[in-house]
Write a protein that binds this DNA or RNA. Structure first.
Lengths: 233, 233
DNA sequence: AGTTGGACTTGAACATGTTCACGTTCACGT
DNA sequence: ACGTGAACGTGAACATGTTCAAGTCCAACT
């Protein structure tokens, strides 16, 4: 039942060099020409390896995208670290972390759409809910877990347990909106972030205040249905 | 500024025959083998035309998908017509129309994911928000407009004007959820539909009751931001 | 009847993601 | 030193979406 490792790790120093060269070349070319215009042959050529060698490390062109996702996530982590060190207000932490997502990804906006569509295929194990992206997904959820636990807000147990998953999903939604956003300075996305994070914080407050207990149960179950069902493992 | 017609209409009786044969063959093969496993050569062969001829009518394999979308929409219309004739309660109309979407699309569930991902590319004019899908999008919105206007509920002007767009977006969301739903009988999707349509109806009621006027304005603006920005034309 | 222009048709050619059978390198045990 | 096997590397070959220059058909006009 172990997962087939479609992204082969390098097991040699030489191998690690090749792997890094291929991934670096892909990263450069994706930015220079976009996803579709970048051919595997061009990647191999710039990396200084043969076409076949690329497939030794990355099972497909899509698998290179997963590496790209990880790359942006690490940028995102680096960008938010000082903020999470300093700020204690939950609303501010959440809002600024989500803002940082779109700021971090901004250089890739032009081809983010192409990347999204290749990875959105539910039949691919690379899709956001799928097996091969689980590790990265867990890391993103961990970030939002830190957003919560590092704040001065206390959360009820059920919400504390489930919110990171929902916030990961929420971040995906924001990214999807951002992909389509053509407003100058991506202002519209930033507005939506402010509005939705504010809404989220308010809804959590209402839950905390033990108001609307009846509705709360129903709505929580609905959210559970929506966000909880599709994850692999 | 006129749109380039990437799906060529037939201008001859003979042409119309070919066009229908190609589309019919594509529809059959998509169902038999899925989207990716269906080659343009296989479509042309079953349709009894040459490979090149297919491209005379459909600019790309993706454009055949747009036709497929239209096909399912017409199935959906046919399935909901008697219901909309009879039922007058808005909540019931909305819920059953959305339920009918997933019931209608059920035979295509296996390859709906592949189709979705090819059409989700924001840089493609075929994406749900894009130019080439506008006609179909308008028809779906018209359906939801009928769901509203045929009911015994009266809507405030601003909501009456904007709700069809939001319900179209909502239907897209439900379909996306349905694509990933592997529960038996697609029960989870049906539950989500019941829960969300109920929620929508309640929110509208609250708006109608002139409660929460302050929040209403802010939330409406938020929804406007989210749902209103990306549509082409 | 003859001409013409455009719709329609064709299949070869092309580009590119992917596979594969085979060659090379190298650390390690003997 | 030598053999071994796994990791790594290679490029030709394949499948398939797409393009294109050229051919065929047909209705309308002269």
């Amino acid at each position: 039942m172990s997962t087939a490792p479609s992204i082969e790790p390098a097991r040699t120093k030489r191998g690690e060099t090749s792997r890094a060269a291929i991934f670096g070349a892909a990263l450069e070319l994706f930015q220079e020409r976009g996803y579709e215009a970048t051919t595997m042959r061009a990647i191999a050529e710039r990396a200084g390896v043969s076409l076949g060698s690329s497939y030794h490390y990355f099972a497909s062109k899509e698998h290179l995208v997963l590496g790209f996702y990880r790359h942006t996530h690490e940028l995102h982590l680096a960008a938010t670290a000082p903020l999470l060190e300093r700020e204690r207000d939950f609303a501010a932490r959440l809002r600024d972390v989500v803002r940082a997502v779109v700021v971090t990804c901004e250089p890739f906006h032009d081809f983010a759409g192409a990347i999204f569509s290749t990875v959105a295929n539910p039949s691919s194990p690379l899709n956001p809910f799928g097996r091969e992206s689980k590790a990265l997904r867990d890391e993103v959820m961990q970030l939002y877990s830190d957003v919560m636990s590092g704040s001065d807000t206390r959360f009820p147990a059920d919400i504390a347990h489930e919110l990171p998953t929902r916030l990961w999903l929420y971040q995906m939604g924001i990214l999807y909106f951002w992909i389509f956003d053509r407003s100058p300075g991506r202002l519209r996305t930033l507005e939506v972030i402010d509005g939705t994070t504010d809404l989220i914080v308010r809804l959590i407050s209402i839950a905390n205040l033990h108001l609307l207990r009846g509705s709360r149960k129903r709505i929580l179950q609905l959210v559970r249905n929506i966000a909880g069902g599709s994850l692999t493992a």
